[in-house]
Design a binder for these strands. Sequence first.
DNA 1: GTCTATAGATTGATAGAC
DNA 2: GTCTATCAATCTATAGAC
Lengths: 212, 212
Amino acid sequence: MHDETDTKERLLNAAEALFARHGCHATSVRAITHAAGANLAAVGYHFGSKEALIRAVIDRRLAPLNRERLARMEAELEAATTASRRPRVATLLRAFIEPTVRFRTTDPKGRDFIAFVARLLHEPEPGARDHFFARMRPVIKRYLPALCAALPKVAPEVIQWRFHFCIGAMAHTLFVAVAPPVAGHHRPTALDGDALVTLLVTFLTAGMKAHS
Amino acid sequence: MHDETDTKERLLNAAEALFARHGCHATSVRAITHAAGANLAAVGYHFGSKEALIRAVIDRRLAPLNRERLARMEAELEAATTASRRPRVATLLRAFIEPTVRFRTTDPKGRDFIAFVARLLHEPEPGARDHFFARMRPVIKRYLPALCAALPKVAPEVIQWRFHFCIGAMAHTLFVAVAPPVAGHHRPTALDGDALVTLLVTFLTAGMKAHS
DNA sequence: GTCTATAGATTGATAGAC
DNA sequence: GTCTATCAATCTATAGAC
């Protein structure tokens, strides 16, 4: 029952899987501790509350993800500067999207996190959602100027909205690609992660560049 | 307390508002009946169960919405046929998107429904989500061939994925535009419904047409 | 149709022994 | 750190009077 990993990490893993499959509201502390092979009181001891556990599940995956997003974005900005060109929209979008998808392919646990986040994005109650957006805000705040530099002919307010379109398309797509259990749903042909990213980047780049 | 409307409708209104604000899992039958000025047993009597009430909330708004979507799509197909041209991508997308947004502007209750549906889209548990997709399937099944006719140079499997991108972008955008309570979130300038639809249609049309 | 009352299960959190 | 035991609050659903 008990892995080599410590209880705290087993709780995070179990919570992530259950949140993805049933939502965080529908997942009880009892279910989490049982799946982790831990005692009912373990969540209270290690995290303080169920809410704090949810935040910990978010942070564990999101922090390295956003680090990679920013690093790749900065690399493109730097390459553009030294080559005296504008940053490329497609490269910026790929830098934002690809870490998530690759992460989904690499780590089997990644799938759970993606389904969880897609749901989190539209969580009506504050709490978990606000925490998620607080972690995303610094990334978005630095992506917007980069996109504006890449698209000097598109108004900044339009770019803001279009970036929202990108985030929505990405989240929904990853959710659909990751969570097959939609009974009889018309899911298109399965794709590997790379093909999916390319498909998304092509679509979103054309949208970002559209002249209104 | 009691409006002129009957109990059943008051329950639907109260449920819709509460589902939008707190999610359907986090909304208790007690909260619904209390908000509707009805008795705790009223949900059981009028709908049979909480699940059946959720389905009724979905159907009440979605049925007329999808009727309008299909009617406007068929009108474009017919206009294209009589003029011996291809259907226009932008017109098809607008026919899909505009009813929802206009509906949001017209009916103050529309806002609640949109927030509810955005959440429903990524609901991990079957039940409400499966019911929603069952209602959407006939619409999507008729939109895909129309889009293929409008885009003869894009492969049908690519069109399927791109239509997913459209749905994700639309759902997330409407949710963001409708649900302001994101603390400190970088929401772009407020827009009226028409401007938002145009912004979306421009973006998505360019994406649909992109040559891979 | 509306109401009270309650059954029966489940929830998050915690006190206190080990 | 882990465990048992339990509290107080909540939940959906329903039986039965009016």
